[in-house]
Design a protein around this nucleic acid. Structure first.
Lengths: 211, 211
DNA sequence: CGTAATCCTGACTTTTTAGTCAATTTATAA
DNA sequence: TTATAAATTGACTAAAAAGTCAGGATTACG
């Protein structure tokens, strides 16, 4: 009768995933407090009690969604070859970050919502990883500055600027759409945004070669 | 008995403001759905029924809060002398925007929350004003480019980058604090952020004079 | 004063929503 | 085939929150 990790059939697993996806959309759109168990059930096409069969309560369901979100973020932090030169690293990172935002808008928005609400429910683990990643990256940037490979600047501020900007199309999509008078933002819109951001970052670092 | 705009005494007006401020904090912290009328009453130090005396229901109270937020935003959009040169305009705008974010964190976060939720409740009026302002500013930037006063770039993207970055300290305060290992962000933190952003924007536009 | 308008409030009702449970169906595997 | 576990579900309960209201207190003002 219990559900906690004791699914035997693949069918149960699939149903659980189906509910999880429905929940992700609901939480993205309404946030934790605005989300309704009934609507999540409706989205998943199952009765509400079936949702409770797999997830004891709303918090547990939200936590399960956050696990996915956090896993995605971990992945987004992962790469970047330390042997590359500053230009390559920066271009690649901006491109990846914009692509991520475009590909996982739900995860991006849920993350943003969590931060706005103080990130209490966000796992401590992610926080530690993010901080560590940031300090390492900042140190790397500082090394570039020391070696005169890029213009001097506050490394943390460069990282913040990239984060803030890359997420902008997801976080403020409404505003951007209103200004462009568009119903939705296409892959092309995101590509152009990525390109502009790349140019900006290179100019900030004095890396643009004007040919 | 009715309250709608029929206050005679200044005392009633003051009480209404007091409730409005309490509501602003509550909505900032919990969002519309997470906000509780009881907690708003507690914050304001009055019984719940007194809140209902001034605001018929939660939505009406939220709308009243949004009116203030929108008014602040209007104000933030207002200035900028068209006769100034690009450098002056950009420096001043970045400084103003960061200062605004620091001075009115509640308004900034409520606005961000609204955008994340699609901005349905945000007045159409603000939207039109914002769009108009943006198009005017973009045209102005385009003129600078045409006259070779600044390097070529997508004017809208420059505006988005400034918006996204200037708001970052309010929207992702949790993350920034975690990285800096600080309990709160001071005026000094914001000043330094403003300065960094100013340098970045100037470099993006090719306006930095390295003396 | 007096009285009328405004303001205030505790106790209440209503609505919404999360969460439970017993009964039933469906799948699994000996 | 049949015993057992897993999955499903409608009808229910409990809790939380919004919202109402009658009557009391306070204030403005002639």
């Amino acid at each position: 009768m219990e559900a906690n990790g004791s699914q035997k059939t693949g069918l149960g697993q699939r149903r659980q995933q189906q509910i999880l996806r429905a929940a992700e959309n609901e939480f993205e759109q309404y946030g934790f407090n605005g989300a309704r168990m009934q609507r999540i059930a409706d989205r998943a096409g199952v009765p509400k009690s079936n949702v409770h069969y797999y997830f004891a309560n709303k918090s547990e369901l939200y936590d399960a969604v956050l696990v996915n979100v956090v896993a995605l973020w971990d992945q987004a932090l992962a790469p970047i070859d330390p042997d590359s030169n500053p230009t390559e690293v920066l271009l690649e990172y901006v491109r990846l970050k914009v692509e991520f935002t475009h590909r996982y808008p739900a995860a991006t928005r849920i993350f943003a919502l969590e931060l706005l609400h103080g990130g209490d429910k966000m796992s401590k683990r992610l926080n530690r990883r993010t901080c560590q990643w940031t300090h390492e990256r900042a140190a790397e940037i500082q090394r570039w500055i020391d070696r005169k490979q890029i213009l001097p600047l506050n490394p943390y501020h460069l990282i913040f600027m990239i984060w803030a900007s890359t997420q902008h199309y997801a976080q403020s999509e409404t505003q951007v759409r209103a200004i462009y008078r568009k119903r939705s933002l296409t892959a092309r819109d995101h590509q152009q945004w990525a390109q502009s951001l790349q140019v900006m970052v290179l100019r900030i670092c004095g890396l643009e070669n004007p040919d």
